[in-house]
């Protein structure tokens, strides 16, 4: 597994993908839709990672190595998770700045707070649960899985933002520049959902990849 991860980060994950995490700093823009800052991962890093892997014929290279297919899926999932967490870590730094220095609230959309970070985890979890199982049905078709996974993530973010705008109960739960118990619970629950969705994504993807003829 260690060797597979080394292969992912040495040969497949382009160093530019780490820079995409810096898009999370767009959260510092006042009165903006902060989810967009995180969605750059879905727009850029994830599809390009799979496209590069396909261009490099990485799946055939890996098939010649002494590895199990399920570990190949696990290594790819871990690569995605590392990049996603990096995206959220940069966002978290910006959220801390928002909560402590730039304290002006977002008058329309969801504030940059701990609940936002928790919901971001859920968004990435949804992205992975759609992308990976769909991709590993063929292990080469990436366009449709990437489009659908992005649509689902954008739909989730839009639903949250619309909820904050039009449903006071949702706004009370997630919005606000003062950290509440609900915000902390949302963050913890978001991380748990992210972990659960990734485990499910791994299981379904690994089972599907086992049946693929390369």
């Amino acid at each position: 597994m260690k060797a597979l991860l080394y292969k992912e980060f040495k040969l497949v994950v382009n160093p530019l993908f780490y820079c995409v995490a810096l898009f999370s700093a767009l959260i510092l823009i006042p009165q903006w839709l902060y989810f967009i800052a995180l969605l750059y991962f879905c727009f850029m890093s994830a599809p390009n990672l799979f496209t590069l892997s396909k261009t490099y014929k990485e799946v055939y290279f890996t098939a010649t190595l002494p590895v199990l297919r399920r570990d190949v899926v696990k290594a790819r999932l871990v690569s995605l998770v590392v990049l996603e967490v990096l995206q959220i870590v940069v966002a978290a730094v910006c959220v801390v700045l928002k909560l402590t220095v730039m304290t002006t609230p977002n008058y329309i959309f969801l504030d940059g707070n701990l609940a936002f970070l928790g919901l971001s985890f859920v968004m990435f979890g949804l992205f992975n649960i759609v992308l990976l199982p769909m991709f590993y049905q063929t292990a080469y078709k990436i366009a449709m899985p990437a489009i659908l996974a992005t649509v689902v993530s954008v739909a989730f973010a839009a639903a949250v933002e619309l909820g904050v705008i039009y449903l006071p109960a949702v706004a009370d739960l997630f919005d606000g520049m003062h950290t509440t118990a609900a915000h902390v619970i949302t963050l913890a629950a978001g991380i748990a959902v992210f972990a659960g969705l990734n485990i499910a994504a791994y299981r379904v993807s690994a089972a599907r990849f086992e049946t693929v003829d390369l």
Partner: peptide, 18 residues
């Protein structure tokens, strides 16, 4: 014909680990 733009040394570094 995999990793056409990578150097042989980079590929070997990875293969060696397995």
């Amino acid at each position: 014909d995999y990793f056409p733009k990578h150097r042989l040394g980079q590929i070997t570094d990875v293969v060696r680990c397995f």
